[in-house]
Simulated scan of single mutants.
Amino acid sequence: MNPRPFKIPQSVLVVIHTPSLDVLLINRTDSPGYWQSVTGSKDHLDELFEDTARREVREETGIDTAIGTLTDWNIENIYDIYPRYLHRYAPGVTRNREHVFGLCVPAGTPVVLNPREHTASRWLPHREAADACFSPSNAEAILMLPQFAR
C-alpha cells in the first residue's frame, strides 16, 4: 500500500452564500470548534482552481455548483501552513497559495457533509460568519462578500 501523497500547496477557499448573504460554515472533524468555508487543495498541479472549487464543494457539502453561481473573486492569499498540518506537505513546504471563490446558492439549499471531513454545518449572516471563522483569510473573504455578491 502506497503512503498518501503529499498535498499540493495550492488550494481554494469557497465562500458559499445565499442572495441575502447568509454564509455556510462547516466544522472540521480534526478541529472541533474550528468553523470555516469550504477549502481544499488541488489534486494535481495542472488542475484548474475552478475545477478544484467545484470538486471540493461537492465532496465537502454535497452541493452541485450548477445550482448556483460560482464566481472567481481573483483574490489569492499566501499564508504559512499551520504547524499541525505541515506533515501533509512535502518536506520544506511551509506556505500555501489559496485562490478565493464565491458560490451563491438558493436559500434552503440542503447540505450533506462528508463525515470523514466535517461534523456540522450552519448558515449565518455574513458578519456573524466572519466572526465565527478561525482562519483570518477566511474571515476577511467573508467580510468582502457584499462587494462580490451582485
Rank of each mutant, 00 (worst) to 15 (best):
N96H: 00
R55L: 09
L124T: 03
R54K: 15
S121G: 12
Y85Q: 02
P110E: 02
R150T: 09
F148I: 08
S121I: 05
D46H: 07
N96M: 00
A120M: 07
L45E: 13
H118F: 10
L113E: 12
F49K: 02
A149L: 13
L45D: 12
F134Y: 13
A129V: 05
N74S: 13
C133F: 04
F49A: 06
N96Q: 05
V93D: 01
R55T: 10
A90Q: 08
S137V: 06
I78W: 03
V111G: 06
P83N: 04
P106G: 06
H118C: 05
G108W: 03
P91W: 06
E128K: 12
L45R: 09
E117P: 00
E140W: 08
P115R: 14
A120D: 14
P106R: 12
Y89D: 01
S137W: 07
T52L: 07
E60T: 13
W123T: 12
T94H: 14
R88D: 04
W73F: 05
T52N: 12
N96F: 00
I142E: 01
E128I: 02
E76N: 10
P83S: 08
F49M: 10
V100C: 07
T61E: 05
F134Q: 09
T52Y: 08
A130G: 08
H126C: 10
E59S: 06
N138Q: 11
F101Q: 00
T71R: 04
E60K: 15
V57P: 02
A141Q: 07
Y82W: 10
E76C: 02
N96K: 02
P115V: 14
F148M: 08
I67T: 11
R116Y: 13
L124A: 07
E50A: 01
F101R: 03
I63F: 01
A120E: 14
T109P: 11
A66W: 12
H126F: 15
R84S: 15
C133A: 11
R88L: 14
A129F: 08
R97T: 08
W123Y: 14
R116H: 14
Y85P: 05
V57L: 03
Y89T: 01
E117T: 10
A53R: 06
T61N: 09
H126S: 09
I67Q: 07
R97G: 00
G68Q: 03
F49G: 03
L70M: 09
A149Y: 09
N74K: 15
T69K: 10
A66P: 11
D64K: 10
V112D: 05
P136I: 04
I81C: 02
G40T: 12
E140V: 07
R127M: 15
A90N: 02
T94L: 12
Q147T: 10
L70E: 04
V105F: 06
T94R: 15
T71D: 00
T69E: 06
